[in-house]
Design a binder for these strands. Sequence first.
DNA 1: CTTGTCGAATTGTTCAACGATTCTTATGTT
DNA 2: AACATAAGAATCGTTGAACAATTCGACAAG
Lengths: 227, 227
Amino acid sequence: MREQTTGPHLLRTSTAELVAGVLRDRIAQAVYEPGERLSEEAIGAELEISRNTLREAFRLLGHERLLVHKLNRGVFVRVLSASDVKDLYLVRRVIECAAVRNSAGGDMAACREAVEDGERAAADDRWRDVGTANLRFHQALVALHGSSRLDELMGQLLAELRLVFHVMENPGAFHAPFVARNRLLTGLLEEGRLAEAEQYLSKYLDDAEALLQAAFDSSSSARLGGA
Amino acid sequence: MREQTTGPHLLRTSTAELVAGVLRDRIAQAVYEPGERLSEEAIGAELEISRNTLREAFRLLGHERLLVHKLNRGVFVRVLSASDVKDLYLVRRVIECAAVRNSAGGDMAACREAVEDGERAAADDRWRDVGTANLRFHQALVALHGSSRLDELMGQLLAELRLVFHVMENPGAFHAPFVARNRLLTGLLEEGRLAEAEQYLSKYLDDAEALLQAAFDSSSSARLGGA
DNA sequence: CTTGTCGAATTGTTCAACGATTCTTATGTT
DNA sequence: AACATAAGAATCGTTGAACAATTCGACAAG
């Protein structure tokens, strides 16, 4: 990251935000696993940036709840608890159901596109892509609100959720059953059957949460040495 | 802020967060007005902290949307637009109405307390206190969800809203008419008339938004030199 | 086995410096 | 006088080094 000093800046954003982007990706890809400590010196040396700049990036991600900052001990990749999953899905129900309920006249193009991407990915057994398409579908659902703040909030929630998925042994398979439900939900919305759609989505989220909680519990009991 | 180096740290939080707290207060109190640029050197010298630490605090507040960071130009106190007000109230409607709708069995103590504080403040013409009590009432409403994430989100929304209030010539008077509505809404909730309560709150928020938009428009037209 | 102490490693914070960008102001041309 | 341009000042972005403060692990003493 030294090249920038020689030529004219092609960067439209600060180095700290660039670095934050790199780290965000690595966390999403589980290069850094939940609970892992991120060394200022090691990462700073690897990315060739100063500690100060790296710390700015850490602050950024801390505020996005991807990292937790422990005083004098450093930053760690966030580890989510069962109660976090509960909270996350409570918020999703509030926001996504409201989006569906008020979606009359909204543009469903992005939703439909995400659904079809998910179906293609599932047909090819590209599980990772199924997952991202699924997340994009829900992001598109929230976008029906037309609110930049809700869009940002949803993006943050989904980033946290990705952290939970890593706990599961087969994150890809988790999303597969929901592809069909995405299509069905989209159909209900396009036909304007909003009340049905809302109820359907509510159950959808209940099921997803239950699955996640189950995987979560078994993983945590295994970690504690269940015989 | 140098004293901390001598004695053992009594601080449980980092200086950057302490500084962020100070700046947050000053913005809320309009010591720093919307649009104003905050000089790293000036504030750093006044608070006796280094530029690096101050920059960490700026990042924090930037993420809370109280400051906007312009590359190579510095940080400015956020200036909200009419569309921001619209977005803010859209989110409030989604979250607060959902809180009311699902509030069956929730603990209304905090709500009632905020209502009564507001009434006392209004009786004594302590307009500023009326405003803070009003904000606390809505925060308590959202707290019925029992979600830490929604609590945090609401706190952020209200902080942004405070920025809008500063645009009005008499911020205190704005809140006065809503004290009675807070009491009425609380009553509906305690009687379990949730559907009515939700509808009432929805109109409540519509009215507040309209008032704010009006004050906003007149202020911006005045700023452009309306005769 | 618990407790206390020492030292290494890491974070928290500051400082000084320099490149890069923006803003200001003076200058010169038409 | 108006406008474009260029030098200069101010400020931000980033770095690297330095030192204080805290944590952690090892080892000795009780």
